[in-house]
């Protein structure tokens, strides 16, 4: 899941960066990079939650 989501953000970033320079400026480009940032942020959030979850489970097992 995380792998899939990160792959999608990577592909979108590459596609956006491959656009001609004139299409990578202005409001539309700004909105696009903001959307990319949000997607990357969602992957980060999921990764953080997974790390916290595994950390808690390890702590629980360590305390047994």
């Amino acid at each position: 899941m995380l792998h899939f989501l990160q792959k999608r953000v990577n592909d979108d970033t590459k596609s956006h960066d491959a656009l001609p320079a004139e299409q990578r400026s202005g409001d539309a480009a700004s909105a696009k990079s903001s959307a990319l940032s949000k997607k990357q942020g969602r992957v980060e959030d999921l990764m953080r939650r997974l790390a916290e979850k595994l950390g808690k489970e390890n702590d629980t097992e360590g305390g047994r």
Binding site: T13, R24, S30, S33, L36, Q40, V43, M47
Partner: peptide, 17 residues
């Protein structure tokens, strides 16, 4: 990994693609 992604999130917001 999440820390790195956080930095990239900020980079993308700054249009660093």
């Amino acid at each position: 990994l999440a820390n790195g992604m956080k930095k990239t999130t900020r980079d993308l917001r700054k249009q660093r693609t």
